[in-house]
Design a protein around this nucleic acid. Structure first.
Lengths: 181, 181
DNA sequence: GTCTATATCAAGATAGAC
DNA sequence: GTCTATCTTGATATAGAC
């Protein structure tokens, strides 16, 4: 399951890069051909149409988030705020290694907002977790939004956060969560 | 200057609605024809090409922000944190009345990220203000990101914030700013 | 699983009438 | 300032060979 990446995954990687570089409106099969070296027919074998590609991008994003969140949750097994902390850390770090952050979300939002539904459900569930788990749900929500604001600004290169900044940001978030009791 | 809205402004309004409803990739002159009732030729009189429309959307967004921020700054003339507070309140409320939030930004990001440059400059200046003005610049930044995360989630309908929620959110932001000393 | 070729359509943009 | 063409390109998608 975690062997070498499948072609399917390589295509999604390339799609995310395209969105990050040129904007979600320029995510086209033609551009994907150039970026992957696979022909249009080849691409369309993996994703029968564009909606299918978009849905896959979003699904993988959600899945990567869940996986990363689980990892953080295990590391934090003895922390009273591990639910909230794992959500914040996973939100901050998912996809960060590739420098393309919320490309999947922005691509779907730009091309077919209706396909956002799975993400809407996922986010709602996350909010539930935050609410039930934290003594100060509104502060927790604020921190959650903060992470996503930072991600957006990074993605659009509206701010130049380096790795050190991101770690300091994460540290500050954790401190603020710990201040809840 | 603030008489009845010019046709130019009505077109930008319609463009923002389209982005909010159908996604930035479906912001086309054809769709704008339907939405405004103006023909393609008519639209192209006001905006010679699409980049010109996108740049105008972004410029108006920035201008509306600055104007709203000035209003808040005047209301807060005796507040020690008026710079940061006015930035946060203006970020939270600009365009909020129309239910389309950062349509301009998302449209430009999706169609031609290079046109984001004026916004990048504006944001950098805002960060400078925050840094120079606040005793805890990193907390201030976090609050700033939080507002924009909330805006994004509202725009993409990833959360259902009502007016009451937004006011409570604003109240919480102000309280947290006041906690800085 | 990947390729070429092609059909179809929508988009940006131009020219010129009113 | 707005309109109706019309041109050109580029994008999705299909069909069928390898």
């Amino acid at each position: 399951m975690a062997g070498r990446p499948s072609n399917r995954d390589l295509i999604i990687d390339a799609a995310e890069r395209l969105v990050a570089r040129q904007g979600a409106a320029h995510l086209t099969f033609d551009a994907l051909c150039q970026e992957t070296g696979i022909s249009k027919g080849g691409l369309l074998y993996h994703f029968a149409n564009k909606d299918s590609l978009l849905a896959a991008m979003l699904a993988r994003m959600v899945q990567q988030f869940d996986q990363l969140r689980d990892e953080f949750r295990q590391q934090l097994s003895d922390d009273p705020h591990r639910e909230l902390k794992s959500i914040l850390l996973a939100s901050l770090n998912s996809n960060a290694e590739c420098a393309q952050l919320s490309s999947g979300m922005l691509a779907v939002a730009a091309n077919n907002p209706e396909l956002l539904e799975p993400l809407q459900a996922h986010v709602q569930q996350t909010f539930e977790t935050i609410k039930n788990d934290s003594a100060q749900p509104q502060l927790a929500e604020l921190l959650f939004f903060s992470v996503h604001g930072a991600r957006l600004f990074e993605q659009l290169q509206l701010c130049q956060h380096c790795q050190a900044d991101r770690e300091e940001f994460a540290q500050r978030l954790m401190t603020m969560v710990d201040s809840i009791n």
